[in-house]
Each structure stands twice: as C-alpha cells, then as structure tokens.
Design a protein around this nucleic acid. Sequence first.
RNA 1: GCCCCCAUCGUCUAGAGGCCUAGGACACGGCCCUUUCAAGGCCGAGACAGGGAUUCGAAUUCCCUUGGGGGCACCA
Length: 466
Amino acid sequence: MSVRVRFAPSPSGSLHVGNVRTALFNWLFARKNKGVFILRIEDTDVERTFYSAYQGILEDLSWLGLNWDEGPYRQSERLDIYKSYAIRFLEEGLAYKCFCSPEELEREREKAIKEGRPPRYSGKCANLSPEEVSRLEAKGISYSIRFKIPKDAYFVVDDIIRGRIEFDVNAITGDFIILRSDGMPTYNFAVVIDDYLMKITHVIRGEDHLSNTPRQLLIYKALGVEPPRFAHLPMIVGSDRSKLSKREGSLSIKELREQGFLPEGVVNYLALLGWSPKGEEIKTLDELVEEFSLEEVSPSPSAYDPAKLRWINRQHILRLDEEKLLEYAKPFLGDLNNYPKDWLLKAIVSIREYAETLSDIPRYIEKYYLSDINLDKSYKEELILGKKAIETFLNLLRETEDLSVIDNVFKEAIKISGVKGRRFYHPIRLAITGYESGPELVEFIPILGKDRCIERLERALKFLEE
RNA sequence: GCCCCCAUCGUCUAGAGGCCUAGGACACGGCCCUUUCAAGGCCGAGACAGGGAUUCGAAUUCCCUUGGGGGCACCA
C-alpha cells in the first residue's frame, strides 16, 4: 500500500517554525517513500479562522518548496460528512445527545478542579430516557453529540518515534463531544473521519497531539477500521526550554522570508531539529529526501537556535549560483535594482560571504560602495604612516585605464614606494573602503570604479593632513 | 489533581552493552594563513541529571527520584 500523509494546519494565524517542521517531515517522508502528501485545512472553528491565514499557509508552503499532491481540502466544506458519521454513531448507540449548556458544563468543570477531581463530563445525559430526549428536543433545547467511551477501553500504540505507549482511556477522559450544538465537528472527531476517508497511512504530527491519540483510537474502533501508524515529533522549544514564544524573534515563516532567509536555509535548519544526517549538515531539499528517515527522529524536544539558522542560511547563500543569488536578492535591493545588472552582480558577489541573510546584501553594498566613507579618527595614525603608499598608488591609478589588471598597479606601487605587505595594503584599504575589513581590494577597486577610488584616496590624504 | 512524553557539551546531535580517556556541527576562546575579515585552516574549553538494579562490563537495559514539556474544552 502506498504511503499517504497529510499536513493539517488550522488557519488561525501564520505558519510558524513548529508547524512547518511538521509539514516538512511529512513531506520528506512522502517523497522518500514515493507517497502522497496531502494538504488539509482544519477550519472548523469559525471564530479562529481567517482567510488571510489560509492564503498564508499556501504561500508559505509554496515558498518552501513543499508542494502538495492533493488538496487543499477544507473541513468547512465537508461538514455534511462529519454530521452523517455522528448520526451513524448515534444510531449505533455509540454516541448520545447531550443537552447540557456550555455554562452548566463550565460550572461543573470549575467545581471539579476546585475539589481536586479530574475535570470530566459526568455522563449524565447518557442516561436520559428516549421520552426525556424527545421532550427536551421538542422544547427546542439545542444539543451536542457525545461519544460514549466504553468502560474497558485500553490501547497500545506503537509510535514510530517513541515506541510502545499505553493508554488507559478511562483514566484519561470522560465522554467527549464529537459534534457541537452548532453542527460543527470537534477536532478529535473530524481528524479521524478525514484521515480514514483520505486513507492516511501515517499520521506525523507534533507531540502536543500525543494525548489526543487515545480519543482518536476510540473513533477508529467505533468505525471498525484499523488506525494508521503514528509518529509524534518532538516539540520545538525556546532557548529557555519552555514553549516557543514570540519573544524568541523570527518565528513565523513569513517573517523569516521577509528578513531574507532562503527557503533552502529554513528547510535545512528545520530538518536538523530532531533529526540529523550522517555527515555534512548542509543539505538541499533533494538530499534531505534521499537521506531522511522517520525512525531516526529523536523523541526529545529541541531548542530553536537563531544563530545556527543564520549560519546555515549563510552556507546556502554561499552555494547559490550567481544568477540565482541576484534573483533571490532582488526584492531586498530597493533602489539598487536601478543599477546596471552586471555591476550589481559583481557587487553582490564581492560581499556575499559576509551576508547571513538576503537583507544583509543591500546593507553591505551600501556600506562599501555607495555611502560616502567616513574615516574614523582611530585610522588617522595608520593613514599617516601609509601616506607614501597611498600617494604612490594614487598616482599610478590616475594613469591606469584597465582596472582588471589592478594587481599590476599594486606591484608597481610597492616597487616604487618601497613599502610592502600589510603596511602598504592596509592604509589603502582604509582609504578606499573606509573600513578595516571587506572584500579583496583587487576585486573591490574595479567595482567601485576609477573615479571614486581616486576621490576616496584624495579624501584620505586630506583627512590625514587635518 | 489525573494521564502521557522527554532527559548526552550553552544549543542541535552521534551513540541501539565492550570500538567511548563519549564523536561531529553552531556559538565561544586561542593560534595560523591572508593586504584586511565576519572567510578558510589548526587547536582548546565544554556533556552522559541523581540513586539503585542487571551484567565480567552500562551513556546504552530495568526501577525509583528529580527536573522539563504536553494534554485533560461545544480550540485545533
């Protein structure tokens, strides 16, 4: 039987790193096994559903390259299906109508918590006689449908990541609602109906769903079908080991994209959270597919580390071919896009090794090539010491037409001035770039252009006289 | 309160009884190279939560403790 997996987010906000790691592992598993990756939107909570979030999910997945084979299915379009199964359960005596009001339930719940009892539904509506049920219905009192849990329910799950897990259902839950009074299904019910109907073979989801599993197994059993295999991925936690919070910085995929992270970088980093490849950590999506294995996923939670994300992103920036890098950088370049393409390309390539994100690219171009250099007072002494080197180089530069052989000019200037090595190059670097570090000078000078080099050198000479 | 999960360097992890004086990567510190570096190279510091048990031998198996996390809704 071929593998079928699904990613089933709810459109209540933007996709964040935790969600996406789940999507990624599902996708990798599907691709690795030549299976099918299904996208399903769990939008049965009208209050929390936003169309923008729905669109965002599609955008984010597309951007990351996590293409889906089926869907997006939307649960809100399948309401009749859930309802029909709920009614079937009702008819089979597996569920019953519950006329308790939300307020009433909330009161009981609070009371139970206060008295130190587990907050569970008492099951009182299960004992309503048929006459009472029709009387309440006739009065127009709305009802929900509750699943009646069998008294002896006990499950053993063989989780792909965690191994054997046992659940004593009666120690966990009371009768739970499967269809709300407004006709909407609840999560635990709708997931199972859908996973069953969509023939899902492997449910790969976050560990936060682990304790939902027994409730869902109950539904499978009521349906009379075999449940799929389960794999519960470890949570991604913050640097303080607690739940990932907004304070942690860039957590939504949209934000990461806007900050200039590459889809390659994000995907690569996320793949390393809970899983690790044998050798080199820098991988393309194709390589990840090749090497990924669900069995190798670690069960313990992993902390989100922005520093490593940045490092990995930089590795991908370094590996991109030049045209593609330019393409990626474009949205971040702003007015820089008006510069001639070949100049832009050279400028980008000259500073790419410093860039951790795409948004660093315009910053460095601005810093080195465009803004007026502002020589720091602390450079003064070194510039004075290097005056001869600067002057000699400047004079030769004036007579040079072809900047592609600038290294010959350097050699010539070294010969004439008698200054060499660091004491020769460094003052010139300060004068021309304005900083102590930056791109190779032989690369830098042709990009900056002869006139501006001369201008900057002259300016430095003036500065050291001041 | 009840149920479930987790536990190796600061972080991500390798490790499925002897190959472990515990390996790699990020971050950190130092050195080297280089005209400079935020690049590259080399080196360093840094961990098996604690206690029992099994075994000739345990990071690896079992139990307990502790710590962290998740769940217990007419949210998903």
